[in-house]
Design a binder for these strands. Sequence first.
DNA 1: GCCATTAAGAGCTTCTCCGTATGAATGGTG
DNA 2: CACCATTCATACGGAGAAGCTCTTAATGGC
Lengths: 302, 302
Amino acid sequence: MVGMELRHLRYFVAVAEKLSFTAAAEALGVAQPPLSQQIRDLETEIGTCLLERTTRRVSLTQAGQDFLVRAKAILHSAQDASERAHAIGCGSVGVLNVGLTGSMLAGPLGKLIHKFQETFAGVDIQIHEMSPDKQIAALKSGQTDISFLRTPPQDPDLMSELAWSEGITVVLPKGHGIVSDSVTLSLLKDEKFVFLRLRDSLFAKHILQCCIGSGFYPTISQQAVEAASLTSLVAAGFGVALIPEFVAKLAHANVTYRPVVSPILSADVYALYHLRSGPMARNFLALMRSDAERLAAELRLG
Amino acid sequence: MVGMELRHLRYFVAVAEKLSFTAAAEALGVAQPPLSQQIRDLETEIGTCLLERTTRRVSLTQAGQDFLVRAKAILHSAQDASERAHAIGCGSVGVLNVGLTGSMLAGPLGKLIHKFQETFAGVDIQIHEMSPDKQIAALKSGQTDISFLRTPPQDPDLMSELAWSEGITVVLPKGHGIVSDSVTLSLLKDEKFVFLRLRDSLFAKHILQCCIGSGFYPTISQQAVEAASLTSLVAAGFGVALIPEFVAKLAHANVTYRPVVSPILSADVYALYHLRSGPMARNFLALMRSDAERLAAELRLG
DNA sequence: GCCATTAAGAGCTTCTCCGTATGAATGGTG
DNA sequence: CACCATTCATACGGAGAAGCTCTTAATGGC
């Protein structure tokens, strides 16, 4: 005999619980002789009798009683391990680490995460707020599974996919001279601007390029780290700011918002994931894609 | 595939720990192609990939990492269950319930139990003091595995075996007229006797028969339940007593002991055990037999 | 670009697990 | 008391699975 197998345990447990070889054989869907043979093999392997049998009665030895408990536990563990691995393989169990910047949750991501948690109740979503460069490093090291950025990096290990597009909104201090419902970028060329810190924020660089594209280099009066701070700085009189549409959802009493209608600016958000990202990230992306219509509709509504 | 087997787990753990099919195959003593096949079968059975493999590198998926931990635990449990059952089957692990009367430990039984505990360190000996009839009931119900009595009962389920023989000692109150080093039973025919309660004690009945056999019916002044009480009653002046030799080891200041030399009386102690007693009881009996010479020598020395 | 290494596939062999037929033992019943 | 029914063990043959050898495809290093 080369070794004990789970089949031996399954057979033994059946016999031990029925206290009958014939009844156990029927329950197992095998004939009685091979069952007897397998039990015999098991006893030989272990080196002790597990069952006392006469032709009329089957009973457990002390060793058999102890082994029965353990065999059942082992079979249960095996079943559990199999189901668990399957669930992890399907992405329906585990921890999904999501990297994002603090200002990202104001957009559609919140609803997406909520929907994902409803669909995959076994998955625990951990949100990690971090700066864009940290996000990329975390993705590459495996600390996070998926990340949301406004500008995807060039990296052969990382895949990027457009998650959603937002319009860009200008934030004006209350009582500002511009009163039209919408503005053009060039209209703002003489304003002072509040920017996110150009060193850190790819989004800020993008806005800067848009301004240059509209024929002016913006005067930057102040730089901030957190996107939510921009609105407060505008309210404090430091100038105006260009922010992603959904960040403007965070209403502020002392400012007014105006959509930018020319040029048509977009603040794209990309989902980033590793080439060998797990099934949970794939599920998240799949849900995101299937949810694209809802996001698009929400975008049209503003 | 009919079901997962421990073989699959053994193979998977080998591959997962070596991160190489060829190295794992060599370690397992099988060829590489069947190993690949078995892993593939396992993945099909579970319903998810456990290993990511290229022709140059093997790595674990998340599901594989989780499954590896559980598979190792299962294999360990199986090994442990097997070894444990073997140990119980050998009688080297478990609880041995010994029934005896309180006065029995004064003899060679103490040393025997001590020696058994040294030999079978995994066995926990539980001593149950109870009256003879309770001992028999306990044996038959399985509450005890082995019991020590001075007269074996007639019962088809119970086996008895002579454990040891003691001489019989007469206990005299200090200053008693008999001063010779040894006495004959008939010399005591006019004494008052302290007996164990005849209703309970088979030993007392035996002594009574011996007296009758020596031509007199003893005058019983008092009956006791505990053998150790006999000596105290003699010291208190209730008469003389006939007790097993080893009980006389419990010295008492106000009495003297004299061996009975005629007739040669013996107080036999029998080991009782159930027909289907476990291996621990068998081991105990085997040790008792192999120890018989030592006991006999001790008996000769008195 | 070639070679070494590694995993996977094909075909065949061996082993073992299982089913049928049969035997032996025991407990109940007429 | 003998018979019968039930139950477990044994014997043997066949189907299927596991394993081995040979070979192929793919990848990383030189």
